[in-house]
Amino acid sequence: MIPPMNTPLGFALHFSLVCLSLAYFAALFRLLKGPTIPDRIIVIDLVASATMGIILVFIVATGKTIYINVALIIALIVFMGNVAFAKYLKKTMQND
């Protein structure tokens, strides 16, 4: 599926998968350590970006361009999620 390592495309795909998984680990670190709630919310954005990146790399590797719709749906849902979290935090703060 992924071309071998000594072609340029194969090297690029392997390299990008390594970088994207490092992004997941960075997100996990900040999710566990982050001192405040907004620190943990912006992790969602990074995880969603890394997932979209993996889907796009998968499209380049296999040629199934139909999966670009998945990236669109993820972008949509993450925007909704961020706005919902912001509204929720605002509301809980006003009630206190």
């Binding site: 090297f11 970088c19 992004a23 790399v57």
Partner: peptide, 18 residues
């Protein structure tokens, strides 16, 4: 290949920044 490598480097920048 160049586009994919640049894109993953910028994702790495975001991860290191966070």
């Amino acid at each position: 290949s160049i586009l994919i490598i640049l894109g993953s480097l910028f994702m790495l920048v975001a991860a290191l920044g966070i």
